[in-house]
Amino acid sequence: MARGNRYVLLSHCLLNVNAKVLGYGSYSGAMKSLVLPIIEEGIGIFQLPCAEATFGGLKRWGMTVEQYDTPAYRRHCRWLLEPVMDQVQDDIANGVSVLGVVGIDGSPSCGVHQTCYGYCGGTIGSGDWVDRSTKSVRLDRGQGVFMRILSDMIAERGLSVPMASIFEGKPSRVSWEEIKKELQR
C-alpha cells in the first residue's frame, strides 16, 4: 500500500484519555468516533504532547486558562512544541499534507474556539472560596494556552495549518466528517 502523505495533529487526550485530570473523560481510551474514521480514510495521526500532564502530572487539579496563562507554562508549551513544529515544517517542505490540528473546546490548554475561564483565587480550605470558584467557571470564546502558542508558532514559521475543535461532552456525536469540513474552510 502506498503512503498517503497526509496527517492530522490531534490533542493528546483524543488518543489517550488517561492524560486528563482525574474525573474527566467520557470515553474509555481513545475517542473512537473521531479516530477510527481518520484511520479508515488512510490519514495518519500525529499525537500532540499533553502540556498539562507534562507540566502538572496526573495529580493536578482542573484549572482555568487564567491559571495556566503564566510565563512558565507558556515556556513549557513552546518547549514541547519546538520539535513538533520542526517535524511539521519539514514534512510540509517534503510534500506531506498536514490537514490540520484538532483541539478540544472547553480545555484551558487545547481549546480552539472556546476555553475555560473563571479563576477567583484564594485558599480552598476556608470560607466560601470553593463555592465562589466553582460558580465562576464558564466557557467563553478564546483559545487555550497550548493552542495559542501552537497558532503563534505556525504563523512564525510562515505555515498555513488550519485548526478545528471538538466538544467532547458527547463523544458519540463527534464526527470526523464535520471536523474535516471545518478544516477545509
Rank of each mutant, 00 (worst) to 15 (best):
P71W: 05
V174Y: 00
I149H: 08
Y73V: 03
R60G: 09
I149P: 07
G56H: 11
M153A: 10
Y119G: 02
D105H: 07
V21L: 02
S107Y: 00
L48E: 01
Y27C: 04
A53G: 02
G106A: 12
Q89S: 14
D69C: 06
D91M: 13
L15E: 12
I179S: 07
P171L: 11
S28F: 03
I45A: 07
V130H: 10
C13M: 06
G127W: 01
G106N: 11
T64F: 01
P171A: 08
G142N: 01
Q87C: 02
K59P: 01
S136R: 13
M147H: 06
I149D: 13
Q184G: 01
G57W: 12
L80K: 13
Y68Q: 01
L150R: 00
T123M: 04
S133M: 09
G62F: 03
G111M: 06
E66I: 04
I39R: 11
I154V: 15
I149Q: 15
V88G: 05
P37V: 11
W176F: 15
P162A: 10
Q89L: 07
S107I: 04
V161Q: 11
C120I: 12
M153C: 10
G103D: 00
A51F: 13
G142Y: 01
R173L: 12
N18H: 15
P108M: 11
T134S: 15
A2R: 14
E182D: 14
E177Y: 03
S172R: 11
S107T: 03
S26E: 14
A19E: 09
N5P: 00
W176V: 12
G56D: 05
S175H: 10
G158P: 11
S160I: 00
N16W: 13
C13N: 07
C110V: 04
W79M: 09
G142H: 00
L10Y: 10
H76C: 05
Y24H: 12
L183V: 02
R60K: 15
V161M: 13
N94M: 08
G118D: 03
I43R: 04
